[in-house]
Structure formats: structure tokens, C-alpha cells
């Protein structure tokens, strides 16, 4: 669907936006993690996405290859559990983008990513983990695209709102997974760092989508992504690109 160059440009913009945001919020994430974890989440995510951006920029492949590179870089550069959770899951889910980036492939990517995070981390909603932000975000995105037929930007906006409510939901919970679970009741009253970084990433994917997509055209393109007419080609291209990073 998208010409490879535009797809690459949007993907790299999304990765750069995420890297910048995580660098800016490094202290905040580390403060959250020092309350209930091992005080390294901000540093780890910043280091991870800095490496991811660098490696993605020097990757020549298609969208799936670029996204897989992000996952590989995160696995190698992040020391904590976020490395395998974010990185390993992105690596696995990147295969869903082999047919290019379109609304339906990004839904498949998001679902594959969520499934791998839950499988690897063995966490359900309510355990005070990134899953609490991720499940509502992915489910909302899927529904918005597949059931409500919304333009991808609007679907991503709803996903970000859902992720934000998911983060708020983690505050009163007692952690059942991860380092915070060792604290028992002392983990109550704190926002989960992994759910928070998940929200930050979704917000930056949304910001990238808003930058690259035409919202109105995005909706009509969503229904016929693989056979764009010539007039809709540009909008379609941008549309698929920016949404494609959902889940990173």
C-alpha cells in the first residue's frame, strides 16, 4: 500500500518521538519505579529506545524489518524485565507487518503484541502491570477499527484514552507480578511504571499519526487498504504508516 519511503519516514518519526518522550520522562518513570520497584525503568527505557532509534535508522528493510530491529535493540539494551516484555513481544509481533502497514495489519500487530506480553509475563488485568494499560488500549483500537469503522487516528486517540484510564486503574491495586509484588500491600497507592511507559508510547504513536495522517481520508481508506484508488493513495500511505507502530 504505502510507498516504502513514506512508510519508513513515518516509522522512524514514530520511533524518534517515542525515544524523545522517554528521554524527557526518564526521571519521572524512575521515580515511579523507585516507589515500588528497582528504580531503573526510566533509565532502561531511555537507553533502550535510544539504541532502537539508532539501529532502526541504519536498517534498510521494510516496515516489518524496521519494527523487528526495534524489538531486537530493546531486548539487547534494556536490562530489566521491560527488555524481554517490550522487545521480545515487538520482535514476535513484527511478522504481522510483513504485508505492509494497513489498519488491519496494525490491529493484528497490536493483538500479537498483547498476546506475547501476557504470555511472556504471565500477567492478567489487575496484577498492576503494563497489561493494565495495554489490554484496554489494544481492545479499544481493535473495536474502533473493526467494529466502529473509525479513522485510524481516531481509533488511536480512543486507545490512548483507554490506556490512560488503565494507568489510573493501577494506582489502588496491590501488585501481583514483577518486582513490586514483593512489596505486598506497600505497592498500593502507586502508579505502575510499566503501564505508564506503555501510555507514553501510545501517546507518541498518536502524535505521530496526527502529524502524518489525514483523519477524514483515513476512515475511507481503512475499509479498502490494499486497493487504494489513485486519489486516495497519499492519505492511505500516511494513514497506514503512523498507525503501524501501535504497540511499540
Amino acid at each position: 500500500m504505502a510507498d516504502a519511503e513514506t512508510e519508513r519516514e513515518a516509522l522512524l518519526a514514530a520511533i524518534a518521538n517515542v525515544a524523545d518522550r522517554l528521554a524527557a520522562e526518564r526521571e519521572y518513570l524512575t521515580d515511579l519505579d523507585s516507589a515500588i520497584g528497582d528504580a531503573d525503568h526510566g533509565t532502561n527505557m531511555d537507553r533502550g529506545f535510544e539504541a532502537a532509534l539508532e539501529q532502526a535508522e541504519s536498517t534498510d528493510g521494510d516496515a516489518a524489518a524496521i519494527v523487528k530491529t526495534v524489538g531486537t535493540a530493546l531486548v539487547s539494551a534494556v536490562g530489566g524485565a521491560s527488555g524481554p516484555l517490550y522487545g521480545g513481544s515487538i520482535m514476535s509481533a513484527s511478522a504481522e507487518l510483513e504485508e505492509g502497514i494497513a489498519p488491519e495489519t496494525t490491529v493484528a500487530f497490536a493483538e500479537a503484541y498483547l498476546e506475547k506480553v501476557q504470555d511472556r509475563g504471565d500477567a492478567q488485568v489487575g496484577a498492576k502491570t503494563m497489561v493494565d494499560a495495554l489490554v484496554p488500549a489494544v481492545h479499544t483500537y481493535k473495536r474502533s477499527i473493526e467494529v466502529d469503522d473509525l479513522p485510524p487516528v481516531e481509533a488511536l486517540r480512543k486507545a490512548a484514552d483507554a490506556a490512560e484510564r488503565g494507568v489510573a486503574f493501577t494506582v489502588p491495586l496491590r501488585a501481583k507480578k514483577g518486582r513490586a509484588s514483593y512489596l505486598g500491600w506497600r505497592s498500593v497507592g502507586h502508579r505502575d511504571p510499566g503501564a505508564t511507559s506503555t501510555l507514553l508510547i501510545v501517546e507518541e504513536l498518536l502524535a505521530t499519526a496526527e502529524e502524518f495522517l489525514d483523519e477524514v481520508d483515513g476512515g475511507s481508506d481503512a475499509t479498502a487498504p490494499t486497493e487504494p484508488d489513485i486519489g486516495a493513495d497519499d492519505a492511505e500511505t500516511e494513514n497506514g504508516d503512523a498507525v503501524g507502530e501501535e504497540g511499540e
Binding site: 527488555g83 516484555l85 521480545g88 518486582r179
Partner: peptide, 11 residues
């Protein structure tokens, strides 16, 4: 041992 050791070993 803990958390990331399990997941990194799986990968």
C-alpha cells in the same frame, strides 16, 4: 533467579 532472568532466558 527473578523476573527478567526468566524472560530473557526464554528469548
Amino acid at each position: 533467579d527473578l523476573g527478567s532472568a526468566v524472560m530473557n532466558a526464554e528469548i
